[in-house]
Write a protein that binds this DNA or RNA. Sequence first.
DNA 1: TATTGTTATACTCTATAACTATA
DNA 2: TATAGTTATAGAGTATAACAATA
Lengths: 149, 149
Amino acid sequence: MSDRSRKGPLDTSGIDRIIGYRLRRAQAYVFQEFKTHFDPLGLTPADYSTLVLIGDNPGRRPSELAEALGIQRANFVPLVAGLEAREWLERRKSTSDGRSFSLHLTELGQQVRQRADQVQARFEQKCIAELGGEVGRDELLNLLGRFRG
Amino acid sequence: MSDRSRKGPLDTSGIDRIIGYRLRRAQAYVFQEFKTHFDPLGLTPADYSTLVLIGDNPGRRPSELAEALGIQRANFVPLVAGLEAREWLERRKSTSDGRSFSLHLTELGQQVRQRADQVQARFEQKCIAELGGEVGRDELLNLLGRFRG
DNA sequence: TATTGTTATACTCTATAACTATA
DNA sequence: TATAGTTATAGAGTATAACAATA
């Protein structure tokens, strides 16, 4: 029996206790699954969260939305440009502040959001099943919410 | 009262129910905190997990370790090169397979790992406190482990 | 033929500084 | 002078294809 060819599985107990590492692995897995679900719609995770946030908060400014999403306002620019190019949202010049404008979903954008919400609901059910039911999902969101709180 | 200057906080209830989004936010926060803790040691999150995994599994091949870490073996190359350049690990040519070699922590690498483990233990305590105690930590790791399981 | 480590490359995400036009 | 949106850019992280040496 050669000692080098078959050593059995690796000991991952050390890295498996690192919260940040486990968060990275879980996030990578869920994002990958998310992408396969949303690929037919042509929506990235960032696209979808932006669509939802603007849909729920019409008329807001880019910098407000970027901050709520936890991204730099500079990185929000190409995101908005992409959604605008597909005519899913529109910018309306602010009457009170010439530097700024407000963001709104178009009719088409609202339809896309509705379809995306249905895909999200299906994907959410898959995640909930993996988490062992809605109690597990609620507990996970609760625990994640304790960071930064 | 101008209707545009003060609209109050945004409605984030939509995005806050998206598991992938919440995982991204939590992971970004924990990684950022991790980095501030590990900056004095010159260790990135990937460096530290690699150090731990090799320390717990001396003599393994790069492709085994890369797979266990969930990264491409191509992307593992510069990671190992960086640790080797600092003389924290060494490669020993395999006697049974001329293509491969085994990875081991050097004495210096083991010392660095010990110091890093202490930093990690402190950081872990901070995370546990934010999670409301060890029960919260255990529950979080348990839930994260249900993905991909 | 298949596999190991490697190189090259490209694409995404993220972070920073600086510009412009307004305020 | 300060702020909003924007541009440019650089650095990570990640994914793929292909190559040389070895099996």
